[in-house]
Structures are given as C-alpha cells and as structure tokens.
C-alpha cells in the first residue's frame, strides 16, 4: 500500500486579514502548504508570524471580523466553503487540536473524564458503558496513571503534564486524521516535554494520524517532524525536510534561528540573536519582509518580493540568493 504520499490536507494561497475601521491588516499573506497522510509537519516562526492564525483558520475558528481567502483542501473538501454545522461534524472527529496552555483549554468545572467523553458523545453513537471503557482506554494509552480515579478529577487537581495528556486524549479519542498541536510543549518543563513529544510520535505511529506541529522551538521541531515550514511575517520563507533544514538551511532567517539555538560548545559566550524585530502586520513593504534584519540584503531586496525558489526536489526558499552564494 502506498498511502504515504497521499495528500491529506492542502492549503493553497491562504490569506487571512483582519478588518479594522481603516483597512484590512493581513496576518497571513498567501501561504501554501501540504500535509501528507501519517506525516508530522512542523511550522516554525516567531510570535506573531501567523502560525496560530493559520491553525485556527483550518478549524474555522477565527473571529467574525476576519477575511479568509484561498483554499484549504481536506480529503477532497474545501474547508473554507463549509457551513457552520458541517464544520462542527469535522471538528473533533476528523481534525482536532491541542493547545499550548492545558489549564485554560480545559473546562475548570467539568471532570476531565467527562471532557474526553464529550467528544465521543457528539461524534459516535456508543452507549454510556462503551464510551466509558473507550475513555479509560485512551487515558491509559496516553500514560495517565489510574484512569478510573483520574476520570473523576477536575483540571486544577492535575499537574501540567497530566493536563496536557488529557488534552491530547480529547484530541485523539475519535481517531482524527489530522491533529494540530499548537505549541503543545511550551508550557511544560523539559522532562515532561520530552514525554509529550514521545507520546505524539507514538500516536502518529500507531493511529496513523497526521500531525501539524506548531512551535517556535527548533529543537523540538527537529525531534519530531519530517518536514518543516518556516514562516516569517505571514509568508512561508522556507520548506525543507527537517534534517536538510538543519544541515543546509537556505534562508538567512532560518540560518539565524539555527544559530540562535544554545549549544553546549557556546557555553559562556553570548547567545546569538537576530537583530531587529518582527515587522508589525501593519507595515507594508514592497520588498522582502526580512530585508531590514538580513545580513545579506542588497538593493533588489528592498524593491522586489522574492518568489519561492526550488533549490532541491523538496527544498524551497524565498530568497534571491538561495542556492547561490548562501
């Protein structure tokens, strides 16, 4: 069977704008990306580059004052053209999501077991007893101790790691095709982080769900993803297999990110940072958005916006210099 290369979700020229009284501000400026079946895809970028907004647009959860154009093709359906009740059927069953902060993403007044159960209640026709055993199974699978007891607990009674496991249980209980994990490990300490990453990999292996892994942490991305998109100021600036991205980064921004990772041998030295700041979404430049912060910029970067350039069969970079002197 060769379903490895089959596309699960394909985003084409997605633009997301926020209406303000004066004008429309674009947070995402025409991105295209693809997630294949059983793949773990990473999206990296600084805060405010449009990662989360992209994820929410897949879930159709953006507020009313946003304008979304483009095409999100999920197993042959354009998600952007669905009606409210049709998206509700897909949410939780076919696509689900795990948030960064597990404390605020769980209902403080509902037993955690019931919160997992709710997903089954909506999307399956199982009776109470079957659902209960299903929930306990899932809780066991994600490594929660004493499922029966934990079922009865409220979110505040659990640790951050356990809460995130609950959140993951909610996401996977209906066996979705796609799980969007929006910085799922950022709020956790390093050891728990490693456990959660391992859990996500296990879920990906065993239940054939694709995962979109959103993070600003390149180290985490490298550990779990097979393919990475680097986003900057609402654009995708580089796409590459995870390993290629680290050994042979093509965009000056990616290079900066990798250089900025703390390493063992740089102990005692000052950490590298990319100078300048992320442009505000209200800034409109004609040229490359990274130009003001780029060490390699030249005249053309100020006036022209570079296209995504293919420098290898699965490696694309949005830079004039890509594949050349860089």
């Amino acid at each position: 069977m060769n379903c490895e290369n089959e596309s699960l979700i394909e985003i084409k020229d997605l633009k997301i704008g926020f209406k303000t009284p004066e004008k429309i501000l674009h947070a995402v400026k025409g991105i295209s990306l693809e997630v294949r079946k059983r793949e773990i895809v990473g999206i990296v970028g600084e805060s405010g580059c449009g990662k989360t907004v992209t994820a929410l647009s897949i879930m159709r959860l953006l507020p009313d004052n946003t304008i979304v154009t483009g095409n999100i093709n999920f197993s042959g359906i354009n998600l952007l053209s669905l009606k409210e009740d049709e998206t509700r059927e897909i949410r939780g069953r076919d696509i689900s999501m795990v948030f960064q902060d597990s404390l605020s993403s769980l209902n403080p007044l509902m037993k955690v077991g019931r919160q997992i159960d709710e997903n089954l209640m909506i999307h399956t026709s199982l009776d109470n007893r079957d659902r209960l055993s299903e929930v306990l199974d899932i809780m066991d699978k994600v490594g929660l101790p004493d499922p029966e007891q934990t079922y009865e607990k409220y979110p505040h009674e659990l640790s951050g790691g356990m809460r995130q496991r609950i959140a993951i249980s909610i996401a996977i209980v209906c066996n979705p095709d796609l799980i969007i994990a929006d910085e799922p490990t950022t709020a956790l300490d390093v050891t728990v982080q490693a456990q959660i990453l391992e859990l996500l990999r296990k879920i990906n292996r065993e239940s054939n769900s694709s995962i979109v892994f959103i993070s600003h942490n390149l180290g985490v991305i490298r550990e779990v993803c097979s393919k990475v998109y680097v986003m900057y100021a609402g654009h995708i600036v580089e796409r590459a297999p995870a390993e290629t991205l680290f050994t042979n980064p093509g965009h000056p921004y990616t290079m900066g990110l990798i250089k900025a990772l703390p390493k063992l041998e740089s102990k005692g030295k000052e950490l590298f940072d990319i100078r300048g700041r992320v442009p505000s979404i209200a800034d409109l430049t004609q040229g490359c958005p990274f130009e003001p912060r780029c060490d390699y910029s030249f005249e053309r970067c100020k006036k022209e916006f570079p296209d995504l350039k293919k420098i290898d069969s699965d490696h694309e970079v949005r830079c004039f210099l890509a594949g050349g002197i860089l």
């Binding site: 959860l61 939780g92 689900s96 993403s105």
Partner: peptide
C-alpha cells in the same frame, strides 16, 4: 473567548 470554549468548539460541541 477563553480557550476552554475554543476547545469545546474544536470538539464539535453545539
């Protein structure tokens, strides 16, 4: 606007 409500929507709750 809180995350737990967003999360409920993501589950497909009416």
């Amino acid at each position: 606007e809180l995350d737990y409500v967003k999360n409920a929507k993501i589950k497909g709750v009416s």
